[in-house]
Computed example of a mutant assay.
Amino acid sequence: MTSRVIFISAAISEALREARFDDGCPVDAAGVRLARAAAGAVPVAERLWVSPTVRCRETAGALGLESALDVAELAGLDVGHWRGATLAEVSAKEPEAVARWLADPGSAPHEGESVRAFCDRVAGWLDTASHLSGRTVAVVEPEVVRALVVRVLGAPEAAFWRVDVPPLTATEFSGRAGRWNVRAGRPLGEPA
């Protein structure tokens, strides 16, 4: 049985433009407009899921996926007390903590989730999805896609910071028996 999971990265928001750790900020007007324009490009799927953030839910709605179900395991990286701050603000206040966080995937100086724990969480979810036949579409935060690419390719966790995931792109994982292939970063609206 082959399983296909297409992850669509959420549309742009003010927080993303400002390199701000997610603070519940909604999709901005440009993001809504682009998502609505791409709505017809979302493949038909047996299951529609969404990361439980405002931005992902609004993106799913603009894409016409109002019936998508929240999946807690697909939530973005928990950055603890850094939530709502920009990377520049945190770097100015806690430079050693930021340096440690960026260098050590097991570190969580923000008292949230380490990159390693985050990669484990979303990879564990993908393992359960491997038992589902057909196609699943999930609208998620970009870091969810980054973590999955790292794990599926067997890259070191430090590679998490080296994977760019633009808004409103589709990354497809297809496979069976725990072996996944990746088709990365196709902008919605381009032929599959």
Rank of each mutant, 00 (worst) to 15 (best):
L188N: 10
A35E: 14
P105K: 02
E18Y: 07
V139A: 06
R183E: 15
R179K: 15
W82V: 07
E96F: 08
R162C: 09
A88G: 11
G185K: 00
R33S: 15
A15E: 11
V122L: 04
L168A: 07
R20D: 11
W49P: 00
A10L: 12
S3H: 05
H110G: 09
V137Y: 02
P52M: 04
A155V: 10
V79K: 09
R176Q: 15
A170E: 02
A15I: 10
W82Y: 12
G189T: 09
W82F: 11
L34I: 03
V98G: 05
V54L: 05
H131P: 04
V145H: 02
R135H: 14
D120N: 09
V145I: 15
D127E: 15
N181T: 15
L132G: 01
P166D: 15
L148K: 04
T86L: 13
S9P: 06
A38H: 08
V144A: 05
S9L: 07
A192K: 08
D78T: 10
V54I: 06
D23E: 12
R179V: 10
R146S: 09
D23I: 06
L34D: 12
C56A: 13
A184Q: 10
W125K: 02
P26Q: 06
P167H: 06
A45P: 03
P156M: 14
R183G: 15
E157P: 02
P109K: 10
G31S: 11
E58H: 02
P142N: 13
F21M: 12
R146E: 06
W161C: 07
A92L: 09
A68R: 01
V98Q: 06
V32D: 02
P187Q: 08
V163F: 11
L126R: 00
A184W: 14
D78S: 13
A177V: 10
V137G: 01
W180H: 05
R146H: 11
C119K: 01
R36P: 11
A19P: 01
E113F: 07
R83F: 05
L34C: 08
P167G: 07
I6C: 04
A158L: 15
S67C: 12
S13A: 14
A147T: 06
F118D: 03
A117R: 07
G175L: 11
E46I: 02
A10D: 04
W82C: 06
A97E: 08
A75N: 00
V27F: 11
A45Y: 05
R146D: 10
S107C: 15
L126F: 01
G124W: 00
V71L: 03
R121H: 13
V139R: 01
V150D: 02
A192R: 13
G31R: 01
T53F: 03
D120E: 14
